[in-house]
Write a protein that binds this DNA or RNA. Sequence first.
DNA 1: CGTCGGCATGGTA
DNA 2: ATACCATGCCGAC
Length: 886
Amino acid sequence: MISTPGAALSSKICFNSDCKDLKSEIPRKGWRLRTGEFAELCDRCASAFEEGRFCDTFHLNASGWRSCVSCGKRVHCGCIVSVHAFTLLDAGGIECIVCARKNVILGSSSSWSQSFLFHSSLPERYKEYSARGWTQLAGSGPVPWRQAPSLFNSSVSQPELHSRVPNEVDLSTSIDRLNVCDRSSTPSQEKKKIEEFSERLMNGNLKPGTRDIQEKGNAGINFEEQRNTCLTKFQQSSLKEEPSNPSFVLAVPCTSPDEANGQIGVSGSQLQPKPQPTPAKQFHSALQNGLDSSSETRIRNGRTQPDGRGKNNLFPRYWPKFTDQDLQQITGDSNSVITPLFEKMLSASDAGRIGRLVLPKKCAEAHFPPISQPEGLPLKVQDSKGKEWIFQFRFWPNNNSRMYVLEGVTPCIQNMQVQAGDVVTFSRLEPGGKLVMGFRKASTASASDQDNEAKNSNGIYMHGDAEMADPTSWSKVDKSGYIAKEALGAKVAVSRKRKNSMLGSKSKRLRIDNEDLIELKLTWEEAQGLLRPPLNHVASVVVIEGFEFEEYEDAPILGKPTIFATDTMGEKIQWAQCEDCFKWRRLPSNVFLPSKWTCSSNSWDPERSSCSATQELTDEQLENLLPQCNPAAYKKMKATKTEPENGDALEGLDTLANLAILGEGESLPASSKATTKHPRHRPGCSCIVCIQPPSGKGPKHKQTCTCNVCETVKRRFRTLMLRREKKQSQKEAETTGKKQQTLLPDKVRDGDPPPCTNAENSSPKTKMVATEGSADDPNRVKSSTSPFKGQIDLNIQPEREEELSPGSDSGSMMRSLQDATDLYLRQQSMLTSSGNSNLEVTQTQPGGRPGEEKISSSLNLRANHQDVDKEPPAVFSASAPTSDTG
DNA sequence: CGTCGGCATGGTA
DNA sequence: ATACCATGCCGAC
C-alpha cells in the first residue's frame, strides 16, 4: 500500500498510494523512508499521520493488525508507517508504544527514593550503600534493554528527561530495566545478581551522613523526613511537568531523534494532547500514568498494577483501590502526586500484637527497596495523617523464596485503630517518593461490632483514621453504603470483634465475599445508562485513543425518565411526565429533560405547555405504554397527584449508582465476584461512579481529568457502547421480521395502546437488565425475562416505596428506560448538538425502606466511536397516540 | 512464664 | 506442581 519511495517523492501526488491527492506546494513530511528521505504527503494524509491515525485511515483493511497485549488496542504492525508504534514482546505479542512507554516511564517514576528509607546506622550497611554508587552504571551506559529502545531516548516529547542529568536518567531507567528483567525473565542466578546489583545501585544513592534514628527499636517514632536526592528530583521534574509538556504523563507519540524515522504520532499513540491537569489533580496524572489506560479486560479485572515494577504480577486483591478522596487525604498538599502501589487486607497475624505485617512478595519486591539481607532495611512510612513511622522491612527465607514482612507496625496499626480485615494501602507520594500508608476499614462490619465506624464503614473507601474522613465529603457515599448495609441486613454482618479473629486466608476470602453480598440489581451498564450530561453544558470533546468523549464541566445528571416511541408517522418521539401535574407530554425523541421537568418547559408543544392542558395519552394508552414495563413503576409513573419528587432525587440516584456499581460483580455470585471477576466494584471501589460526589456537591473530577478513574470510565463506557451496539446489531438482525410485525403505528390511533417500548427491543439492553433471579445463577445476566428483583427506584420517595412490591417486576420498566438510554446514546452519537438533554431511569428497590437515603451518581461520557454510529436507533415498537384523553 | 525472633508448615490460588 | 502467605511452632531471652 505504500508506493515506492522514489516515484512518490518525485511526483506531485501524495506519497500515500491510497490517497492520490495532490501534494501542496510545500509537501508535508510523513514517515521516514528507507532511503532516509521522508514521505511527502498531502495535507490530509500528513495530518492523519501526525495525529497517529494514518494506519487507521488507510490501512484498516490491510493485514498486520495486532492487539496490544496490555491495553488491547489494535495496532497496525504491517507497514513502515507504524513500525514504531509498537514493540515486540519477549513472550510474544506486541505492546503498543503507549503502553510500552508507559510501563517504562512508570518504572522510572516509580523508583522508590530513599526518602522513605530509614538510613541505617550500621557501618556495614553504609559501606554497602555507598561503596558502589550508581554512577558506575551511569558511566557504563544503559543496561541492555531491547524491547523498546526508543522509549528511553525520547527527547522531543520528554524534555524533562533531558533536563535530568545523565546519571539520573541512567539510574532510573537502568534500575528499572534491571527490575523489569529481574521480575520477568531472568534465570534465578542472574536474577539474584541483578537484584543485588540493582540494590546496590539503589542504596548507593543513600546519603551515609544522614542518620536519624537507630535501625531498630524505633518503630512508631515520628521524625522529620529527610530530604530527597537527585533521584527524587527526577521524580519531581518528571511528574511536575511543565504545561508546555503535558504529554509526559499521558502517553505520547513515540518520538526519538535516534530512531530512523523520527516520526511523531504514529498509530501507537492516538491520544491527543489534553489540557494539563491542575496541580491539585496531579495525582490523577500519576494514576493515569500508572494505571491501565485502555484495556477493557483490565478494567474488568480491576486496576492494573500501577507501578512499573512488578506490573502484571500482582494479584488483583493487592491492586490499590484508591479514591480521589483517599488520595487527597493522603496528599493534602495540592502539589503532591500520589501513586497507589498496593494494598493488603490485614490478616489476624498482621494485625496481631506480633507487629509483623506480612507483605505480599511481589508487592514488596516491586515497590519496596530491594534487600539482599534478611535483616532488611528500616523503612520510613507516612500515615495518612502525615505521621511518620519507621518499620523494618525485611524478609525470611522461606521455601527457597522469601517472605517479606514489615516489622514494628503495631504502634501504627494501633494508632490507626485498624484490625484484622481492614485494609492497609501503600502508595508513594511525590515529590519525595515518600511511602504513604493508608488504611481502609473493612466494609462489612456489623453495626453492633463497630458502632464507632457507623456509616463510614460500609464498604466505601475511607482511611482508617476516621477522624480524617471529612463527614461532609462522604455524605453521599456514606449514604450509599448505609443503604447497602441496611438493605442487606444481617447478611453482611461479619463479626470482626475478636482480636485474634483467625481470619485466615479462607476467612479473608469469605470476608470479601460478604462485602460483595450487595444484592443490587443494577449493572455497571445500567448505571452508565443513567448518566446524562448536565443541562445546558457544552461538552468538550476529548479524544482518547481514537475515541471521542464528551466531557462536561459539571457533574453529570440523571434526567427525566421518558418513554420512547414511534408515532404514526414513523417519527421517533418520547413521552415525558410533568413533574407537577404528572401528565404525559409528547416530545421529540432527541430532547432530554432535566429530572424535574414540567409542562411549562414544554416548548415543543405550546398548546400543552401548561399543566392545565389535557394529556394526549388516554389512561388506557398510558396503561398500555407502561404496564408491560413494570407495574410498580407504572403505578408510580402513572400517579397523577402525589407528592412531588423530593429534593433528594438526585441524591438517590447517586446512591443508586454507587450501589449499582458496588453490586456490579453484576450478577455474579458473591463468591466469584470477590477477587477475580470484578474486583473493581467491590466496596471500596474507586471507580468514578463509586466515588463521584453527588451532582453539584463536593469535589468533582474535572472534564480534563485524566485520572485512572476517569480514564477507566471512559474506556469502559466506550466498550459498553461497542458491546451494546454489537448486541443490538445481532438482535436486530434476528428480530427484524418480528419487529416489522409489531410495528403497528396506526393501531394507536385506533385506540390500541402502544406497547411498552422495550417489549421488543430490549436486546441491546439484555445484558443491562441482568441480576434478576438468584444471585447464583450465572445466566441471569443474559436473561431479560426473569423477574427483576432488587431494583431501585432512583427517584422513589420513602412514602411511595411502600406501594412497591419488593417482588414486583420492574425489569421491563428498566428495559424500557434502557431502551431510551440506548436511543439517547445513539442519538448522542448522531446529534452532536443535543448534549443538553436528559433522561432519567427509574427503578425500584425491593429492599427499600422508608427513610433510606438515596444518592445519585453521575457521569457523562459519550463514546463517539464509529461503530457506535453504524446502527440506526432502535425502532421502538410503541406508537404515538394522538388522541387526547381530555 | 511471657515475649520475641526466626523458621516450618500447610492451605490456597 | 508450584509459589505464596497466614500462622503455627519452638528456641532464646
